[in-house]
């Protein structure tokens, strides 16, 4: 595998390959012409832990607005709705995950990919926080900002 950067979540080393970009909603993005392929970042997977169930509420071909709700996930530790990381047209979901989502835990940067979006924006502006994508380095800086708040949130919900 190519180079990657590390972010420490407590004792846990979350690694982020530098061969791809990252969205603010903790998904990685990799251009696979003509679409962007998305999956969970190691940060998201660490918070979720074992994924048990994945459900999509839009069909392939659906045009998406950024942060439009597209599905939901259930894991050992969490439940969450999932939202579009960027605008575009949803072109495919990873069919393997519907029967067995465990590939997300086994190989989150590879066969555990989630979906593909064809974006109408030819070049996404780097680091445009709402709809754009960040480099691994920018993403780690972003995680630095939010890590304390994330921990507070999770502890708050568990209290």
């Amino acid at each position: 595998m190519s180079d990657s950067l590390v972010f420490m979540m407590g004792q846990f080393e979350a690694t982020f390959p530098t061969d791809r970009q990252y969205a603010r909603n903790h998904m990685w993005a990799r251009q696979q012409d003509p679409a962007y392929r998305f999956g969970f970042s190691a940060y998201a997977v660490r918070l979720l832990q074992d994924v048990y169930f994945l459900d999509w509420i839009v069909d392939p071909g659906t045009p998406l607005q950024p942060r439009q709700e597209i599905g939901s996930i259930e894991s050992k530790k969490a439940e969450a709705s999932l939202y579009a990381p960027i605008a575009g047209r949803l072109s495919a979901f990873n069919p393997e995950l519907l029967d067995d989502p465990s590939a997300i835990n086994v190989d989150t940067y590879g066969i555990g990919w989630l979906f593909e979006i064809q974006s109408p924006i030819p070049d996404l502006p780097e680091g445009d926080a709402m709809s754009g994508l960040m480099s691994a380095q920018q993403y780690i800086a972003y995680l630095d900002e939010v890590w304390v708040a994330t921990q507070r949130t999770i502890k708050g919900q568990l209290a």
Binding site: A44, K77, A78, Y83
Partner: peptide
């Protein structure tokens, strides 16, 4: 209250 943590905001909930 759900028994699990709700991470929706993390994944972009408006």
């Amino acid at each position: 209250d759900g028994l699990k943590v709700d991470l929706s905001q993390l994944f972009g909930k408006p």
